[in-house]
């Protein structure tokens, strides 16, 4: 029982970090960025290349993961979303195709065999009698720190409030002197950074391979659909629902792990199209 609780908490923290960048884009730009998983993949590979291939300090690798996420996020906004005028269906088709193309690109450069990331933090810890790797614990803790930081950034800074304002009423934001286009660019960069960071930790607790963009994308889509156009709190709560569901099914029926999440997506779509917390808040 305590095992499930701890594993659930650790997994959910990471899931919340994975989903939050995707939710940000959906709230502000009203489009689903189906290439979001690529941010995680690029983040993971950037970390691998910088810290394991080049042998630079791990912190530089983590920064490279966030950095490439920022570049990729802003590039999608400039080169795909803006020319398509944020029209949701064409953006979704284009970003999904882009994800497949990026996967092929990563295979070309790094090959299609999975890579093993060395733990970012080494060792084992015992938490309430349960043994967990320090790496997994660090991933969850750092996720929490980033999420709390993001919460205060959105609530307490001018740019954060502007992101929130654009997500709720673009005209109201513009006549307050905010340039919605610039805020969109900032949001895509921020989302990319969060995705890239999430990718470093996700890859370090799972594995690094060119198809690794799919699983986080499903998690992120699930959180947005189940949570509704989410508040940060809604995203946290739903990430925990999904995280715990996965840990519980993995403990009792490992064969159907992941399936439950997908069934939950369909169930919520049919029964509560607005999601559990859907109201358009950021």
């Amino acid at each position: 029982m305590i095992q499930i609780l701890i594993q659930g908490l650790l997994l959910s923290g990471l899931y919340a970090l994975i989903a939050i960048g995707f939710t940000l884009i959906f709230s502000v730009g009203r489009v689903l960025n189906l290439a979001y998983g690529v941010n995680l993949m690029l983040g993971g590979y950037a970390y691998f290349w910088v810290s394991q291939t080049l042998g630079m300090p791990k912190l530089v690798g983590v920064a490279a993961g966030a950095g490439i996420g920022i570049l990729f996020g802003i590039a999608i906004h400039r080169l795909i979303v803006k020319p398509l005028k944020s029209d949701p269906v064409p953006v979704e088709i284009a970003t999904l195709i882009l994800a497949v193309v990026m996967q092929a690109g990563v295979v070309l450069i790094f090959g299609d065999a999975s890579k093993i990331l060395l733990p970012i933090v080494e060792g084992n810890w015992r938490v309430a009698g349960v043994s967990v790797t320090a790496n997994r614990l660090a991933a969850a803790l750092i996720s929490w720190v980033i999420l709390i930081g993001l919460y205060f950034f959105i609530r307490k800074t001018h740019v954060g409030r502007a992101i929130s304002a654009v997500s709720m009423d673009v005209k109201g934001a513009a006549l307050s002197g905010i340039n919605p286009d610039r805020i969109n660019t900032i949001t895509w960069g921020l989302s990319g950074a969060l995705g890239g960071l999430a990718g470093v930790f996700f890859a370090s607790v799972t594995q690094l391979y060119a198809g690794m963009w799919v699983a986080p994308l499903i998690i992120a889509v699930a959180v947005v659909i189940v949570g509704g156009i989410g508040s940060i709190w809604g995203t946290l709560i739903v990430a925990h629902i999904i995280g715990f569901m996965e840990v519980i099914t993995a403990s009792f029926m490992p064969e159907i792990r992941g399936v439950v999440t997908m069934l939950l997506i369909i169930g919520v779509l049919v029964m509560m199209p607005k999601g559990l917390f859907g109201r358009g808040e950021l």
Partner: peptide, 14 residues
């Protein structure tokens, strides 16, 4: 064109 899910104070601060 207010920001519906923000507090009054936050609307003013925007």
């Amino acid at each position: 064109h207010l920001f519906p899910f923000m507090a009054i104070e936050d609307n003013l601060l925007v």
